[in-house]
Amino acid sequence: MALYLGLTLVPILIGSLAAVSCALLGNFLVLRRQSLMGDAISHVVLPGIVAAFVLTGSMSAIPMLLGAAAAALLAAAMIEIVRVYGKVEPGAAMGVVFTALFAFGIVLLEQTDTGSIHFDVEHALYGNLESLVWLAGIEWAALIDPIALSDIPPQLPRLAMALVVVVGFLAVAWRPLVISTFDPTFAAAAGVPVRLVNAGLIILVAMVSVTAFEAVGAIIAIAMLICPPAAARMMTDRLLPQIAWSVAFAILAAAGGYVAAGAGVALFVEGVAVSAAGMIATVAGVTLLLAAAFGPRRKGAKA
């Protein structure tokens, strides 16, 4: 039982923080029909993250966010160049640029075998939640022991900060965000700062993708952006309850997925566990499937 705190509770908490941050923002992406924006961003930021890692040799948050931002700007410029000079439609230009940048990120990653820090392709794709355990926190007493507390995986406070920023953004920008999500034309006419709100939303999605990718991987983060909000939409016709449902689904996926993966056991018994991030995304997908089949507000359900 004592093993519970450091080996299970801390990774579950990290996974939940990442999932909830993603799900909160995902509600607006899904309602804006921009669900794939998260997909695109998580592809594009990879080379930026790797480049920041190569340049600074650390996985601290600030350089990674700067790298991700630089990569996003580069992607925007490249899309425009491909679109104008390649004479292809915007969708094709985006597809080419996102995939090319992601592939470049992987190649870059393969070349950076520093050995000292664990950072490889698998890590980038589906994270390494299993390793984010708190070995000093085996006993409950560690919660009040400053030395043990300093050994908490840095991802925990980092993702907690990210969640605070996301909640703060939603609280401050709530009304402009809702109005410009529902009716951007009216919003612009009524003087709602539509562009500022749009930019804020996308920047936060990028920030959350970068911070969440260490825990669940860049690619699995997409599932957290889309599945919980999409499932939540089928549970209710009101925005605030939808957001509450999406948070519940996100925590369910993170905790349920981690436990189902048997990840805690894997440290001691070889071969019984599956990827925690993969299992979390699977649970999120199953939740969506169940909501689509039985949710009270799914399409075609009687109102």
Partner: peptide
């Protein structure tokens, strides 16, 4: 300004009065 009705997604999770209240922005 009143946009074309079909320019928005009416599946948006809002009630009638929620939309009218947007007019007070």
């Amino acid at each position: 300004y009143v946009p074309q009705r079909l320019s928005v997604d009416w599946d948006f999770p809002a009630t009638v009065i929620d939309v009218v209240l947007m007019g007070l922005y």
